[in-house]
């Protein structure tokens, strides 16, 4: 069931996920389309998520946006006291205290700036790290990434020991979850682009604006909608990397099917899952930790495809 409508306010709205904002020319959504989108969100009873560009919008836009209860995803340059999620472009500027921050980085950049992550976790409410080059993840990368997460885990463990409750998607989400909690694009979440058309997610818009699934006039029509649901994903439904984004755009890009994850995405998610397990074990050795949660089980694979095909 649809729960969220992501509204890209401009063609240059910040990316908060795997895709790149490939459009460089400003193209603001029309006020008329924005009003229609908000009206539809109210009718469908879904939460609107506004995604901002790196420039200030005309005042009347803020007034229209405020006619609906919504959340704001903004680049650091346009953050304000209402911003729910702040997207950081690089590692130089510290995120505001107490915010939910997203940092997009290549694996190499993440490995290079790993110590910053621990510093930020001391002050932010939550940090989402989005690795932007999952598709080129190699076996060697996997080993480096596993080492990195192990090191990072030690820092996170220390924060827990100090009485903090750091939230880092790569390490703490899996231990908190009891079932799949993925991106939901095409299932629980839909995106409206500035052209007034709907897309499975922003990535689908930037990749091909003709690849829409309806518009504000005709409504949303997702062909083969079932394929975005977990039950129709043979690999994912057997998987317990519950924190995985399960990015349907990356799926389609790499395997040509929205319901089938690539080997790389699976290995990355399982490397995080296993690091999360290790963190959980390590903290529990020192005292009571998440007593209502089951310990993440030990497994002998990094790609559930291998489990299915055994």
């Amino acid at each position: 069931m649809l729960q969220y409508m992501i509204i890209l306010l401009d063609d240059t709205s910040t990316s908060f996920c795997h895709y790149e904002t490939t459009k460089t020319e400003r193209n603001l959504i029309s006020l008329d389309n924005l009003r229609k989108a908000i009206r539809l969100a109210m009718i469908e009873n879904v939460t609107a998520q506004m995604v901002y560009p790196a420039y200030e919008l005309p005042q009347e836009y803020y007034e229209v946006i405020n006619t609906i209860d919504h959340s704001d995803i903004a680049p650091l340059e346009q953050k304000n006291e209402n911003s729910d999620v702040i997207v950081l472009k690089d590692w130089q500027y510290n995120p505001p205290k107490g915010c939910v921050a997203v940092v997009r980085a290549t694996l190499a950049a993440l490995l290079e700036h790993g110590e910053v992550v621990n510093e930020w976790l001391k002050t932010v409410a939550r940090l989402n790290v989005v690795i932007t080059d999952v598709d080129t993840f190699t076996d060697d990368d996997q080993k480096q990434y596993a080492d990195f997460l192990q090191k990072l885990g030690k820092g996170v463990e220390q924060l827990f020991m100090n009485g903090l409750s750091p939230q880092l998607n790569l390490l703490t989400d899996r231990m908190m979850l009891t079932s799949m909690n993925n991106c939901g694009a095409g299932d629980t979440c839909i995106t409206l682009a500035p052209n007034g058309k709907f897309y499975i997610c922003p990535a689908f818009y930037y990749e091909n604006p003709d690849d829409n699934v309806g518009d504000l006039e005709q409504g949303i029509n997702i062909p083969n909608k079932q394929l975005y649901k977990l039950g129709y994903a043979p690999i994912c439904r057997e998987c317990d990397s519950w924190h995985c984004k399960r990015c349907v755009w990356l799926n389609r890009k790499l395997t040509l099917e929205v319901n089938t994850p690539s080997h790389e995405q699976c290995v990355m998610a399982h490397t995080e899952r296993n690091a999360s397990r290790q963190l959980m074990v390590s903290i529990r050795e020192k005292g009571i930790f998440l007593p209502d949660k089951e310990l993440i089980p030990e497994i002998d694979y990094l790609d559930p495809f291998n489990k299915i095909k055994k």
């Binding site: 043979p234 790499l254 080997h263």
Partner: peptide, 15 residues
């Protein structure tokens, strides 16, 4: 490209 083979090898009747 083993990724492009995955959908074929995990396809079942009910899905």
């Amino acid at each position: 490209d083993k990724n492009k083979l995955r959908p074929f090898l995990t396809l079942d009747r009910t899905t």
